[in-house]
Amino acid sequence: METTSTMPYAVMGNFYDPNKLIHAAEHIRDAGYEKFDIHTPYPVHGIDQAMGIKRTSLPKFSLGGALFGLANSIGLIWWTGSVHYPLNIGGKPLFAFQFSIPVMFELTVLLCALTTVFVMFGYLCRLPKWFHEYQHDEGFRAAVDDTFVVVIQSDDSRFTETGAKGLLEKLGAENVRTVAANTEYSHV
């Protein structure tokens, strides 16, 4: 996967206090940054709102998958039963909604669930991803242990290196640094 071109380098800062982190996230959001991320060792309540993360588009995909499954089931039963291979079974009509509903229900649920899972992991979460671009940074690795890491990416339209660094320092970040994205492992 070629993701290197979109992530040239970033400014990072470490936080140790979740309240400070949320405060910082709100300020970065209000400063107009869009391409910034926060890595935490555990889920932090309220961080989504503080970062201004919009609601996921996943439900739209789910609905699409559900409607696709519904259409398929009707098509399947109608075409196989009354067009391609009509069979009289116990005097029942060749096509009726009464006996199609269980199949309609099952295929709707099945394709809805499959669409949700694959769109979420494969598209929205961009999996499989074996190596994160900033994973070589020592400070970033601490995000799985005891540190909250705020990352402002240089491809944000408002980004200037000094501006981002200044903002993070003002918000109380420690070890504010510029990190180049590692492209070496991103082809794995």
Binding site: G90, K92, Q98, F99, I101, P102
Partner: peptide, 12 residues
């Protein structure tokens, strides 16, 4: 309510 209807419709 559909299950009730469906089973009765099918068994006839």
């Amino acid at each position: 309510s559909f299950s009730q209807y469906f089973l009765i419709w099918y068994a006839n």
